[in-house]
């Protein structure tokens, strides 16, 4: 038992390198997902029917089929068409496009949440369309997107575990290798689960900071720091629980 923990300890740097890979993929895929989401949202709101249909098709394609299938498709089928991506690139591409398709709905809803009066004021003031979008509409829509962005970021972190299935050496892949190398059973996954959870807490905390900054900037009430603590109050009054 003690020998086992010693060797687990020896493998720790190897596992930590995996954390680094996992974070790299998370941020790279997210950096792809956000512009994709804006593009798809713009496509869905386009005045050209063809563009609307094309954007809708891409969104349906990525939302309706399983991410695992998409990943295997990028890994096994794309090379047949002469497109050979490294496992890491394939993973980032699929995760980014998949999450971007989901997040495009958030972007669209946020842009639409800007009250009609703001748009009408822009028209009444004869502001150029581009100016109105970049200086009036978008600055108001961005803060609305921040909380769902936080959710999407944590989702992406969990999502990256799938790239281990196409041999990317992330945290999950390395855990599997350690299990095989040491011949130990699944305890290593307990450790890895805790690492993922800690990372998720850190990312969510960082986004909460961003949210507070945005609220301050927009002159709105500043929300509490940790969303986990915020959510802890019970929605049911005590008497209704029979006490």
């Amino acid at each position: 038992m003690s020998g086992q923990s010693v060797s687990l300890h020896a493998y720790l740097p190897f596992l930590i390198d995996g954390v680094w890979v996992t974070l790299q993929i998370t941020f790279a895929a997210m950096a792809l997902a956000v512009p994709v989401a804006f593009l798809l949202a713009a496509g869905r709101m386009s005045s050209w029917r063809v563009v609307r249909l094309a954007a809708g098709f891409v969104i349906e394609l990525f939302r309706g089929t399983s991410a695992v299938v998409q990943l295997f498709w990028a890994f096994y089928v794309l090379p047949l068409f002469g497109i050979t991506l490294s496992p890491m690139a394939a993973g980032i591409l699929v995760l980014g496009l998949n999450e971007g398709s989901f997040f495009s709905e958030v972007v669209r809803a946020s842009l639409k949440s800007i009250v009609v009066g703001q748009r009408e004021a822009c028209v009444a003031l004869h502001l150029p369309r581009r100016y109105a979008f970049w200086r009036i509409i978008l600055p108001q829509a961005l803060p609305v997107m921040i909380p769902p962005f936080g959710n999407a970021l944590v989702l992406m972190l969990k999502f990256t575990a799938l790239v281990s299935l196409v041999t990317v050496q992330d945290l999950s892949f390395r855990a599997d290798q350690i299990r095989t190398a040491l011949g130990v059973s699944g305890e290593i996954y307990g450790v890895v689960l805790m690492i993922y959870f800690a990372l998720a807490l850190v990312l969510a905390g960082a986004v909460a900071l961003l949210e507070r900054q945005a609220a301050r900037w927009a002159g709105r009430p500043v929300p509490a720091l940790l969303p986990w603590l915020r959510a802890h109050a019970s929605p049911v009054p005590r008497w209704a629980l029979g006490r």
Binding site: V154, L157, K158, F159, T160, A161, L162, S164, L165, S172, A175, D176, R179, S185, G186, E187, Y189, G190, V192, L193, Y196, F197, A200, L201, W228
Partner: peptide, 22 residues
Amino acid sequence: IEFLRGTPFLIQLYFIFYVMPN
């Protein structure tokens, strides 16, 4: 609830699959 929601399903599955036989 938060732990299950904050960790990848793949690893939860591996954990249960490899630990339960113990």
